[in-house]
Amino acid sequence: MECEAYRSKLLEYVDGDLTAAAHAELEAHLTRCPGCREEEHALRETLALVARMPAPEPPEVFWQQYLRELRQKVAPAPRLPRLQNWLATLTARPIPALAVGIALFLAVFLTWQSSPERPPIRELTSLDLAQQLVLSQDLDMLREMDLLEEIDLLEDWELIQSRIIEGPRKAT
């Protein structure tokens, strides 16, 4: 294997991330190759510099304040006044609220429908009166028709009667 191929595995070697066989092979190469050894040394130093990057070690009082601030941020919101609270519940659960609303509306509407003394919805207009007049004329006509039928029946009755009277006579 050429130096270039070994060097591409140097970071994994330094990190201890190679298989045992690959590790041993690279190690053997490093003993023979000063250039690759220098490269390995540079990598180790670079990683050591990064590892020494400082971070502050805040005192315990800092962490107490840190946690206190977080607790305040996650604490539930203060209780709303009664109406606001009720409205908040409605907006938070719109589907159940809508269902209850529809049920209430239906209950009121059906009660009103079945009531014998329900108030008039609106005043009669001229068009309504005209329609009612036409209806009343129709009713008169219907009554006349009934009368005609009755007359027909009477006529039939007379015919029947005559047949009844004539019948026995023919028999005798």
Binding site: L11, A42, L43, E45, T46, L47, L49, V50
Partner: peptide, 15 residues
């Protein structure tokens, strides 16, 4: 790591 190796060359030589 490759970028840092190149950038920190001076520091490594001083160290």
């Amino acid at each position: 790591v490759a970028k840092l190796r190149a950038q920190l060359k001076g520091l490594r030589d001083d160290a």
